[in-house]
Structures are given as C-alpha cells and as structure tokens.
Design a protein around this nucleic acid. Structure first.
Lengths: 154, 154
DNA sequence: TTAAATCGGACCACAGCGGTCCTGTTTTCT
DNA sequence: AGAAAACAGGACCGCTGTGGTCCGATTTAA
C-alpha cells in the first residue's frame, strides 16, 4: 500500500513517451497505441495533465499534446499532483483545525508534517527526464536534506 | 493523496500511547479512552498490530497489550505494513511477470523500484520512539542514502 | 463544409476502506 | 467451579473513490 493511483502510474508512462518524441505533437490515439492502453483512459489522463499545466494541447485536425516545458523541469511529484491533488501521507495536515478529535494534543502531528515534506520533496527531486531514461544513473539521491529547523545529528 | 489509511494513522497514535506508559499492560478500552477513538476500531487495530509482531497481548481479566520490543526498534514502516501490507508506490513491482501490458519494455519500471525503496527506507528510518516525542529533534534526516548501485553525484 | 481532434462533463461498476458486531477462547478472581 | 473480563477471529455492511466508458460541444485544418 501507500500506492499512487493507477492513473498516475499511466500518466508517468505517457509523459515519458511524449518526452521521447518531443519534436512533434502526439495525439491521444497515437499515445494509446504506443503505451498499449485503452484510448479513452489515455484521453482522460492527458486532459488532466493539460489542466495541471504539464502538457500543452492543440485542438483540431493536426492537434495533439506536447510538454509544456522541458522534461528536466517537470517532476514526478507534479505529475502525481496533477492527477490526485496535493501529496500528503496523512489526513491530519494543512491547518484544518477542529478535526483531530479536538485539540492539537495529538503527539504525532508535527512529525507527520515533516514526513510529508520529506516524501513530497523526494518525489519533487525526480524529474521526468530521469524517468524517461530506461536505466537512470543519478536518481533519488535525496542526500543531506533536512526537514526540521532544529535537526541534530543522529 | 498518496495517503496511508486512517487505520494506520490511528495505529501510530495508539502505539505512541502504549510507548508513553510502557510499564504496564493497557487494554483496548483504556487505549480507546486515551486516544479518543471508538473502542471497536481500537480493538481491531490492536489485533492487527499483534499479528504483525509489534505488540504482545495478554488474554484474560488482567490482560491487555504492550510493546513487543523497545520503541526505538519499532519503525513507522513496520506499523504501516502491519495494517496495510507491504509498502509499494506502484503496482508494477516485485516480480509479477506478464502483467505490465506484456513485456518489460516499460521504461519507468526500474526507476519505480528505486523510488519504492527510497520511500520505504525513509519510513523505516523513523522509529516509534521518535514519533512518541512531541517535537522530535532528529527526525527524517534521510541524508546520504543511495539506492542505485551505480548512483553518480548530481 | 467536413473530418479530426481536444474539452468538459455525466455516468456506472466495483474494490477497498471504515466501522460494527458476534461468537469463541483464555485468564483471573471469588 | 463458576463468572467476569479481556483478547482472537471472523462475518458483515455502507460508502467513498477509483477505474473506465461514453457523449455532446468546440476548435482547427483541409
């Protein structure tokens, strides 16, 4: 568990295909064929990616999709968030007071905030360009990131 | 999204309560009161944690639960896995061939494996002892961990 | 004008999650 | 021995969200 949705998974595959042939506009059915996915799903996902400003779309006969910016400047986190909304591990997050069985006596709250940041930043470190390379050399190093302002050495 | 389930969330809260009073056996209704959660849910979660070898249980009148080992040697990842099964971000994982729209031409597969490991290891680094401390000093440093055997500097 | 494509929805089946409850079994206390 | 207190192990169910399909409207090129 702790899964991303299937559609997010598909989205990343589709984005890598678009990255690979980044010269021309690809339409939904071309991409569906390339990825081996049903065309209606592909259309749905491409629409969401366009809404999330990760793709640009061109309507009409010679229309299709292409990246809104370079693959090096698109992150896995952005793709997931375009499909699923903000990444957060727990519900207890982002200032929704009056939820957590009343007050903030909950001991784990602050810690979850940090964990959220770490995981989100981990996925923000991975670019589409890296995902598009089959056997990526420098991926998810994650090194020496510190979340808490008062972090001490372990 | 990318959420853990509510029950995993509850589980961690319950585990921190057990950690705080680690001298005696706490029963389900005591813990339910402490955490402000309905007692049936608490019972269900405690059973799963016991199955996952994170708690030890004592039946009978003076029964209850206590930690199976010290809080410093129980990780957040273990708690989540006791409730939800193995942590994996994507379905495409763990050698299930003949799934991924046939063959392993999928370009992102290898990369997801690494991301899975990074997130799982991140949650494996955080101990229950750290979660039990309200404002944890040294949490989720995650520094200088390398997943791929051929990682190069960025 | 027509055809090809995206856009924006509505729509539905189904699995999984959240939550309750019931019947055993074990243990302690009287 | 018997009763009460607690865990063990399920069955069960409502509901949300996901996966997936489809349709009409709009845009664009030929």
């Amino acid at each position: 568990m702790l899964r991303i949705t299937k559609q997010s998974d598909y989205a990343i595959v589709l984005m890598t295909h678009i990255t690979s042939s980044e010269d021309r506009w690809l339409n939904a059915s071309e991409l569906a064929t390339q990825a081996g996915l049903p065309q209606p799903i592909v259309s749905k996902i491409l629409k969401l990616l366009t809404r999330g400003r990760l793709l640009e779309s061109q309507r009409g006969v010679k229309g299709g999709y292409c990246l809104a910016r370079s693959a090096a400047r698109i992150t896995v986190a952005e793709i997931i968030e375009a499909l699923e909304g903000p990444i957060s591990v727990t519900e207890c997050v982002e200032e929704s007071p009056g939820e957590c069985t009343q007050e903030a006596f909950c001991p784990v709250r602050g810690n979850w905030q940090r964990i959220n940041h770490v995981l989100r930043d981990a996925l923000s470190e991975i670019t589409l360009e890296e995902m598009a390379r089959p056997s990526t050399p420098a991926l998810v190093t994650l090194g020496s990131r510190e979340m808490a302002p008062d972090v001490t050495a372990r």
